[in-house]
Design a protein around this nucleic acid. Structure first.
Lengths: 262, 262
DNA sequence: TCATTACTTGACGTTTTGGTCAGGTTTTGC
DNA sequence: GCAAAACCTGACCAAAACGTCAAGTAATGA
């Protein structure tokens, strides 16, 4: 939103903001890793040897832990209240760090948000891995839907955060990130098209198929309120998710698989 | 958020806020109607006679017009920026009315938002009207999906506004409104169940069927960004919507209709 | 025509919020 | 053990945002 006021002082390095070699912001920050660090488990006890140079690791430990704390608090708040609805003071409180400390690790609110977007996109490809040309479409689609469903459910907060951003038009999506999404989708669409050519699937548009699956699975995470109201419940149970999964699988498989007798 | 400071003066009616007999806020405000009023077409020219008493109508004209202006500007902003992201000053500017005038018609930002929710819910039942026990399921489902799709597309702004609210957990949904949604859905689920009993449809869970349809159709409106990126386009065309419709219809009909030969 | 009611609006007050800063403490490398 | 770097934080600031007010002008009804 607003950049450091550089005109006020000619000394660009007036305040030595701690840059890391890897990049301005900890884009590679991994929550799980950081939480390990938080508990003092620094790559120890797995195979006896400390994998990474302990020097560098311990150097980055505090930063990793605190950035993770901030991001964890932030994604939760952003997903529930949106970008503008979330106050830095809230993030600070939820993360247990004083506000000024939050600003020590992230230049602006935008920076926190952008970091989360980056992290989220990493999960974009994961579920699509099931769409593998070597597999049979029925099994592959089943697994894909399952993976998508599980992801949305387990990462409710992330899912909503992402939905929130998309609903706003994806302002924080860089051109590069969009290109990446396109590339992955294109690859997988080609797999579907291959299955269609092989007569294993009905001639559907792969992109729209993906979108329908995406929409349906996402729905139960993002619009859990609507789903719960529709089912006359206070909140969705594991069973509801299971039934939702069955329903989607039925529609998709019946809808786009060639009947076995064809 | 904050109520009028009544403690400062003992005179409760210090400022005569213009209450209407019908209710505190113009819940029954209809944009189309108000825009008619805006153009001076006050129930004239349809059948020659002025339907409603002209006195009362002209009395409410200015109010109707300005409330409509405010609501129109507000729904657009809310849908793009969310509740907290939208500034009253922006609504004021977009509606062409000075800020103080906005506050003359609506007590708070919340009041504007709540009014929009109310209006939106009225559209909830509309498309579901196609699910009629007297019809054949194939035709009915086809029309329902079409109606949903068209609605999301034509009322992009409203659709996103609603999605935004649901994503946030439906804070502004009253118990009564939830009950209404449940009632309508239950009625229509019963119709589906009837078709299943008659052997016209495969035994699917009607609620999950509705949710899948809802999710898929909504997707192209709410997450148009994702859809466009997926399709490698800048924006969705009429043709894209048509293809999306075909895809959903194919999946749904193949997925839950009994094959004709059964 | 005149009183009453409805509408309009520029200017103002208060609180909130993103962001800054200076000076502190801890950690690290040697 | 010590200098340098990294980390921490209470107090502060300017801008922005919500909401208020008082003093208007226009519409209405008798």
């Amino acid at each position: 939103m607003k950049f450091r006021n550089l005109t006020e002082t000619s000394d660009f390095f007036y305040k030595p903001f701690p840059l890391r070699k890897e990049g301005f912001i900890a884009l590679d920050c991994d929550t799980a890793e950081a939480e390990k660090a938080d508990r003092g488990e620094i790559n120890a006890g797995d195979n006896g040897t400390t994998m990474v140079a302990p020097k560098k690791n311990s150097e980055a430990r505090i930063r990793a832990r605190n950035e993770a704390k901030i991001l964890k608090a932030a994604v939760d708040l952003f997903s529930r209240k949106g970008f503008d609805g979330t106050r830095i003071a809230e993030i600070s409180q939820a993360s247990g760090l004083p506000k000024a400390n939050v600003y020590y690790y992230f230049e602006t609110k935008e920076a926190i948000y952008a970091t989360l977007i980056e992290r989220l996109l990493a999960g974009w490809d994961e579920a699509l891995g099931h769409i593998d040309p070597a597999r049979e479409p029925e099994e592959a689609l089943r697994d894909y839907i399952r993976a998508k469903m599980d992801y949305s459910r387990k990462h409710l907060v992330d899912s909503r955060f992402f939905a929130n951003e998309m609903l706003r038009g994806g302002r924080f999506l860089s051109r590069k990130q969009k290109k990446h999404m396109q590339k992955i989708t294109k690859e997988k669409a080609a797999v579907i098209e291959g299955w269609i050519r092989d007569g294993k699937m009905a001639p559907v548009d792969p992109n729209h198929l993906f979108m329908t699956i995406w929409a349906s699975t996402q729905f139960y995470a993002d619009f859990a309120t609507v789903a719960a109201v529709t089912l006359c419940k206070n909140r969705l149970t594991a069973r509801d998710y299971e039934e939702a999964y069955d329903n989607i699988v039925t529609l998709v498989l019946n809808g786009c698989l060639k009947p076995a007798t064809a």
